[in-house]
Amino acid sequence: MFSILVDHIEKHFTRVKALNDISFTVDKGELFGFIGPDGAGKTTLFRILTTLLIPDHGKALVNGLDVVKDFRKIRQDIGYMPGKFSLYSDLTVEENLNFYATVFGTTVAENYDLIRDIYSQIEPFKKRMAGKLSGGMKQKLALSCALIHKPSVLILDEPTTGVDAVSRLEFWEMLKRLKNSGISIVVATPYMDEASLCDRVALIQNGKIMAISPPSEVIKTYPRQLFSIKSDDIFSLLNDLRQIPQMHTVFAFGQSAHISFKQEPLTENFLYEYLCKKGHSNIKISHIQATIEDCFMDLMIKPQ
């Protein structure tokens, strides 16, 4: 049985079609990522899965239960961390956790094992008001509260947005441990580099899923040859590469530019000489494997 099954879901709001024919499944114990920018439809989808919003069309099952008819039962089975910090700012860390445990008819002591790793890091601050915590600490408390009733499915809406690189890494290490304990996890993120940490990812943009695959498969589907080019001046490099008539895309990646071509790629020699003529120095050109971000941008500019 799938932990989550979504079948041709659609959702409209007055101004926009937020979800357009969305279908996917999540296996038991899978770490499934939704990768996409703000406004892609991730939150709408998650609100449907957590029984907070009713779809216009299609059907969605969580642990085999229907999100519309069986919403009460589903709520017992899932843990949800909304994108916006939604705990009580004027309760302490400890009070928030106790509150959520009580609402679900359990106690902190009963499920402490599940949250030990995460909660122990903020326990020294348990008397502090939740509103006074730093971003990384809020996120750990929110995850603890989402887990305290021992859910079988965890739904996390952008848990790492606005979080620094160190805390992000730690957060994903925690998710891996939870997954290994058998919990199914669906997580949304705008950070493309986090995709590689999921079992499978769905790339989502403008309410449509553009691709669903394990991350290692996504990068194999990149349809073009890709080159990474460096020189001493990234700004001019980008502009000069964009002048090449045969180019398809030129995107900055840190201090390098990634370039792909419409048809046959130009040779490295040609590119080298072209850039020399334009006055670049310390030019380095290499043929590279696409990253998830390259794939995402390629899918974005494809005519839909």
């Binding site: 920018p37 606005g162 995107f251 971000e293 941008m297």
Partner: peptide, 19 residues
């Protein structure tokens, strides 16, 4: 944090404006 949450293409266009 001017680019939090925006798509990867917009993020790069934004940096073109910064440059």
């Amino acid at each position: 944090e001017p680019t939090g949450g925006v798509d990867p293409i917009t993020r790069r266009q934004f940096w073109d404006m910064i440059f």
